[in-house]
């Protein structure tokens, strides 16, 4: 692998308690991802994509196996350490955008910087940069309900990118978007991946997204089915 690994997954298993029994969503996953990858988990609904992304994002913990993200063992982090990992190094993009509806575009993008205690002037500069990347500098005073779906997702990308995290996790980011908007935000993410060397990890079953991926990890019933790398 030409990239230094930032994610190392060894024999990951995840099961959820289901009454007395339990349901195994992920079985025996072993994978590495390097810095700057533009990769995705692909599979039908219920194949375990979101579960895997959540564990990598330290929102959930492995049942067994080892998951190292930027050197942090996800299973062994305290709530505070996990929150710190997310705050400093991870960006999330969701299917339904998850913007704060009563806050302006500016405030939404500013939020991660508030958590990192940046000074006001610094925050302003960084937010404007991030909105520049996604082409929304003219909407800083708008609130999410006034924006289109495509615009909302661009705000979400700006929010995920504003602190220049090492890793961005995007769970079905195009599921609520039309084709034109899907291509638009994917091109934006490809550009950011190139310019900032940010690692992008997707969970998707959308062909439009799959077309942009340089590495495709196919999941089926919680197992890795195929792992294809496309050099370009």
């Amino acid at each position: 692998m030409e990239h230094p690994p930032i994610i190392q997954i060894e024999h990951l298993t995840k099961s959820f308690p289901m009454g007395k029994a339990s349901f195994t969503a992920l079985t025996g996953i072993s994978l590495n991802f390097g810095k700057g990858e533009f990769a995705g988990f692909i599979g039908p609904s219920g194949s375990g994509k979101t579960t895997l992304l959540n564990i990598i994002g330290s929102l959930d913990v492995p049942t067994s196996g080892e998951v190292l993200v930027l050197g942090n063992s996800i299973g062994g982090l305290t709530a505070r350490q996990a929150a710190r990992l997310r705050k400093e190094n991870l960006g999330f993009i969701f299917q339904s955008y998850n913007l704060l509806a009563v806050h302006t575009v500016f405030e939404n993008v500013e939020f991660p910087l508030l958590l990192l205690n940046y000074a006001a002037s610094e925050r302003r500069r960084m937010v404007m940069d991030a909105l520049e990347w996604v082409g929304l500098t003219d909407k800083i005073k708008s609130k999410p309900p006034q924006l289109s779906g495509g615009e909302c997702q661009r705000v979400a990308i700006a929010r995920a990118m504003v602190k220049k995290p090492s890793l961005v996790l995007a769970d079905e980011p195009t599921a609520n978007l039309d084709a034109a908007n899907s291509h638009n935000i994917l091109q934006t993410m490809v550009k950011l991946n190139r310019e900032l060397n940010t690692t992008f990890l997707f969970a998707t079953h959308d062909d439009k997204v799959i077309g942009y991926l340089r590495r495709k990890v196919y999941l089926l019933d919680g197992k890795i089915d195929k792992d294809e790398v496309f050099p370009n």
Binding site: L59, A79, A83, R86, K87, F92, N98, L100, F111, R159
Partner: peptide
């Protein structure tokens, strides 16, 4: 709930 989840994803602990 989604908002709460988002705060956590963005780096808050649940206590916070």
């Amino acid at each position: 709930q989604k908002e709460i989840g988002t705060y956590v994803a963005l780096g808050y602990t649940q206590r916070e």
